[in-house]
Design a protein around this nucleic acid. Structure first.
Length: 198
DNA sequence: GTTGCGATAGTCT
DNA sequence: GACTATCGCAACG
């Protein structure tokens, strides 16, 4: 049996300190990590930074409201919101308590629970369609607004560190699907990974 | 493989 | 009352 670096014998959950850093750093470092929800899991292959502050594309740019409260909260928690009235999208809250900042998880490479993902996403014609988009992956892993505010360092929704040894190139590009501050290169992808969104 | 468009509901002005 | 950090399907090449 070959040792798969993404399935270590004992995988480690990312500690809170991992998230207690600048948004851009965490966005890059999240690539290659494993998002786990119950029996389903995938490798993070695409992220976008939403640092707040003068970035008008960030939801937190409007200040603290009912929706954006968790973005200003402690790091290492999930921010899940409804997009276009239809789709749930998941972010990771970063930076110290009181400062805004989050990272949108845009695509995964399926790792565990493929059969469950397929049954949750009947519209997916191929496995590439399972998790190659921010709302696709939340459907495949059954992440909803019920998970908003969840602690990613314990419980059923966590992010794990794969065993070291796997290397890949990182590409930086413009964020997708926004109109404000669309000229900022804050999208991070694993080069040549076919599960990255289009 | 590509482009174009409608669905849908929560959030903020 | 306008806007949106998307997806899926249809039509075409």
């Amino acid at each position: 049996m070959e040792r798969n670096p993404f399935r270590p014998k004992k995988s480690v959950i990312l500690p809170r300190a991992f998230y207690n850093r600048p948004t851009i750093e965490v966005s890059r470092d999240l690539l290659g990590k494993v998002l786990v929800h119950g029996p389903t899991a995938g490798i993070i292959v695409e992220t976008e930074a939403y640092p707040g502050g003068d970035d008008l594309a960030s939801h937190s740019a409007v200040g603290i409201t009912g929706r954006t409260r968790v973005i200003f909260g402690p790091p290492g928690h999930a921010y899940v919101y409804l997009s276009y009235g239809l789709h749930d999208c998941m972010n990771v809250v970063v930076q110290p308590d009181g400062l805004p900042g989050c990272v949108l998880i845009r695509a995964l490479e399926p790792l565990d629970g493929l059969d469950i993902m397929r049954s949750r996403r009947p519209a997916a014609r191929t496995d590439r369609d399972l998790t190659s988009g921010p709302a696709k992956l939340t459907q495949a892993l059954a992440i909803t607004r019920a998970n908003n505010g969840a602690d990613l360092t314990r419980g059923s929704l966590v992010i794990r560190q794969p065993k070291p040894g796997l290397s890949f190139d990182i590409e930086v590009s413009l964020r997708i699907g926004i109109t404000k501050c669309a000229d900022r290169p804050l999208r991070y992808t694993i080069a040549n990974n076919r599960f990255v969104s289009r």
